[in-house]
Computed example of a mutant assay.
Amino acid sequence: MESPPEDSASARSVTVRFLAEHCPWADPAAVQLVVTELTTNALRHTAGWWRLRLRAESDELTVELDDSSTRLPEARVPDFGGRGGFGWPMVLNLAGRVEVRRHAEGKTVRAVWSRPGIVAGPAAAA
């Protein structure tokens, strides 16, 4: 899905439909929260586009978000005054594995969940 103009609601909606059809074993609340965080961060921290990709295999679910920024996500001390810092640690905790890769057009954040009963690799920080 290509970036809608100003919100992440479309990404959440697409994700719910995708999970119901292709990946019913996944925790929809966890996956939706990760999608929301990644799209919100792309909207907040980039001046350009973002693209969401969802892929389900028999034993794995992959969520990828490409955006136009080469700046890597970083863990910050959470700020209860409204400046954030909660999302990236949440993404790292909710997904089984997280990878971030820079490329010529920006970066890709990949979150992967293994089907229950399948052992996932450790979460990787940026």
Rank of each mutant, 00 (worst) to 15 (best):
W50E: 03
A56W: 02
A123V: 15
P28L: 11
L92R: 13
F86N: 04
R71D: 06
S58L: 11
D66Y: 10
T62S: 10
G121C: 05
L72I: 04
Q32A: 10
I118K: 08
V35G: 01
A111L: 07
G85Q: 11
V119L: 13
S13V: 02
A30K: 05
P28Y: 12
D7M: 04
S58I: 09
R102L: 07
A111G: 10
V112K: 01
G82D: 07
S8F: 01
D59T: 15
A47V: 02
P122N: 08
L54N: 05
A26L: 06
V109A: 03
V34A: 03
P24N: 10
D27S: 12
P89R: 02
T62Y: 00
R101V: 05
V91T: 13
E74F: 01
G48T: 05
W49P: 04
D27I: 03
R53E: 15
Q32Y: 05
A124H: 08
V119W: 11
E6Q: 10
L61E: 11
G106D: 09
D7Y: 02
E21Q: 14
W25M: 09
A126I: 03
L94Y: 01
A75S: 11
V100F: 06
L72V: 07
V14T: 10
A20L: 15
P122D: 12
R53C: 11
L92D: 07
L54I: 07
M1Y: 08
K107N: 06
D7E: 06
G96Y: 04
